[in-house]
Design a protein around this nucleic acid. Structure first.
Lengths: 234, 234
DNA sequence: CCAATAGTGTCTTTCAGACACTATATA
DNA sequence: TATATAGTGTCTGAAAGACACTATTGG
């Protein structure tokens, strides 16, 4: 059989699913929506939906993020995660889903829209354990969480969880929440401030964390952290 | 518009494309096939083809590897790379392609089959520069090469380029070919033999590289290399 | 005052990088 | 013999981990 004549194959549906992560209350949280339509109506799931015929994959991911969560106005990080296409993962038809990973700063409650009957943040640990998400979304979420954990080791991506201006202590709490470990504040400070172009001081200070006023920083131009921040084995 | 009724969307084609890499003559090589059918008939391209209706994505990748290259009998590494789905990347229809990365030991000339009118190994550097592959395959190849370069830093994946039994020097030549740099043989030896469970001596020796007989090793159980092998900046 | 967080400095250990030296094969 | 590759040891500098100490806020 020649695959050059594509018309002999039944159609595939192509969707995007979003793993949207943030840090709230010292904990890694993921965004889930309550499905307003079948299949899995009423169950919690990752935001996502079908890609339109003339739409790029990343554009579809950005559109779904806006439609289903209203988080589109913010400076968020969006990258492709992986693609899931097991036969039978969607009861309607053969669907291949391209998953995207979104990292966002802590935000007010998301505004559900589109097909979502509700939207909420939930601890990633909780979603990984007990609760059952629709489709194969529990597995997709797990891969997104692991990607985020691995990537903040050697990149400046952790700052994507922070507001535009942040302190060294706030950045450290991001690492602690994502990895679930405690880091030494003094060694962390030495590491991030000693890496050239990683953090740029804005000149301002804040006491929003209590204690002595802390310098405010913006992300610098350095995208990679070399040598990497080492994740304790725990 | 509700995406819950998938039938209102025109069909997508879903394909797999393979970035198959090996090390030949101290150089990173990629496998390309000459297309036997339109579009891009006669041009060089990555092996790949349409996913069948009831076939998983990874299964499709393994099948195409066997059909188009005959490399299926070997112990190769296969992992998902990324998904490419820009509208217009295939002139026939909207096609989303899931790319897979295959790392294989050096092999005799591949046996073309299926739709391939020819198959050959080409230096990855050469393919990255001048020659134009069909579709967006030049870009897919570049992402595969970069993935391989990054991953051998912190994993035992470089051994996937070696035969089952190999010497420390042979493993070092893999790193040198993939990264395009020279490594100090003595420091490399200390690093890889000092990492627990990374290499397991088989007891045998070989002189196939000339010089003093070298111990033969198999891959150990350690999948990760911690701390990582540092890639010189060059 | 105390408690909390920010920030600096110092010591030790680990490890990469450079490289001297020895070992054992083939030509 | 010369030459190639394998393998060990030693020194140095960079950087992580542990942790003492000071600084500056608010209660």
């Amino acid at each position: 059989m020649s695959p050059s004549d594509a018309s002999e194959f039944p159609p595939f549906g192509v969707t995007v699913d979003l793993v949207v992560l943030t840090v709230r209350d010292h904990t890694l949280n993921a965004l889930t929506i309550r499905r307003g339509e079948p299949p899995f109506q009423g169950q919690w799931a990752l935001p996502g939906g079908f890609v339109r015929p003339d739409e790029g994959l990343e554009a579809a991911a950005a559109r779904e993020l806006a439609e289903e969560t209203g988080l589109d106005q913010l400076p968020v990080h969006l990258e492709q995660l992986a693609t899931f296409g097991d036969p039978g993962r969607d009861p309607r038809m053969r669907v291949v889903s391209v998953a995207y990973l979104v990292l966002a700063p802590d935000l007010p409650a998301p505004r559900p829209g589109g097909d979502a009957a509700g939207a909420r943040w939930t601890s990633a640990a909780e979603l990984g354990d007990g609760s059952r998400l629709a489709f194969d979304h529990t597995r997709i979420l797990a891969e997104g969480v692991e990607r985020a954990r691995a990537k903040i080791e050697y990149s400046s991506l952790a700052a994507a969880f922070c507001p535009e201006e942040f302190t060294v202590g706030e950045l450290r709490r991001v690492y602690e929440a994502v990895w679930g470990v405690a880091l030494d504040p003094r060694n962390f400070h030495r590491k991030v401030t000693g890496t050239p172009d990683f953090l740029v001081p804005t000149g301002g200070t804040t006491t929003r964390q209590g204690g002595r006023p802390a310098q405010l920083f913006r992300r610098g131009s350095a995208e990679k952290l070399n040598p990497p921040m080492l994740r304790p084995e725990a």
